[in-house]
């Protein structure tokens, strides 16, 4: 077991010469559901503004890892230390808008201060929904609802954005548009991002670094060549893609 484990620490995180203080520091994080170990001594550092994609098959523990970083797992047995910034936000797979609150109130949920309304309107304009602030969530399409959720996730200028398969329920075209929108907003707001996905191509298109998780163990840590916007025709990408698929246990002959 231990030989499969990739030690991921601050040294591999910031490959730049200067050492930056990571915004996320996980040390020996384990989580158990009854007899089953879902996370097995996970160590992980995420640098400021770093975009990380976490891929794995269903049941691999990727959502559990995200939930531990969102501190939504207080009733789950486990050990280890989870260091995450106080100012963080979560983007769920379902947009999770409160149906009885209008769009703007959903965006400013939990936002305090006199300029909350102005920030909310600006965030809505950022996701291309200016003028829809008085709409009910039920009146929006799935893609629009997810854009509202994205506005809500970024309106508080978080240091860490946790996204749990946020585009999984969208159709392929909407998903591509959401990818571009997410990249643009992340470039503007510079949060560190942990994107949980089961889609290797989504991970390759968006992330600076892809982690592969299996049976609660981080197996593979793959830096992705090329910045953003990413050249989809980059000749290095197919090799990386093949490596990731192999780490996931998907090979051509299987």
């Amino acid at each position: 077991m231990t030989d499969r484990r990739t030690m991921i620490d601050a040294d591999t995180t910031s490959r730049d010469s200067e050492r930056v203080t990571p915004v996320v520091q996980l040390r020996a994080v384990s989580r158990h559901y009854g007899e089953r170990t879902v996370l097995d001594r996970v160590d992980l550092d995420i640098g400021p503004g770093e975009f990380i994609a976490l891929i794995g098959r269903s049941g691999s523990g990727k959502s559990t890892l995200l939930r531990s970083m969102a501190r939504l797992d207080e009733d789950v047995a486990g050990s280890g230390t989870v260091g995450v910034p106080e100012n963080r936000s979560v983007l769920f797979q379902d947009s999770r808008l409160l149906p009885w609150q209008r769009v703007l109130a959903n965006v400013t949920l939990g936002l305090r201060g006199p300029d909350a309304r102005a920030s909310g309107l600006a965030a809505l304009a950022d996701v291309g929904l200016a003028g829809r602030e008085r709409a009910w969530p039920n009146a929006l399409s799935g893609g629009e609802q997810q854009r509202v959720a994205l506005a809500r996730a970024l309106v508080g200028e978080p240091d860490l954005l946790l996204a749990d398969e946020p585009f999984g329920a969208l159709d392929a075209l909407t998903r591509l548009r959401m990818h571009r929108l997410l990249l643009r907003l992340v470039a503007e707001h510079r949060p560190a991002v942990l994107l949980v996905t089961h889609d290797v191509d989504e991970a390759l298109a968006l992330a600076d670094r892809v982690l592969v998780i299996d049976s609660g163990v981080l197996l593979h840590d793959q830096p992705i060549p090329g910045g953003q916007p990413r050249d989809r025709a980059d000749p290095a990408l197919p090799r990386v893609r093949a490596d990731l698929l192999e780490a996931l246990g998907v090979t051509d002959d299987s």
């Binding site: 969102a70 501190r71 939504l72 769920f92 999770r96 409160l98």
Partner: peptide
């Protein structure tokens, strides 16, 4: 799910 949302939005 709304309880979780309330927790993550503080």
């Amino acid at each position: 799910r709304y309880v979780e949302l309330a927790r993550t939005t503080g």
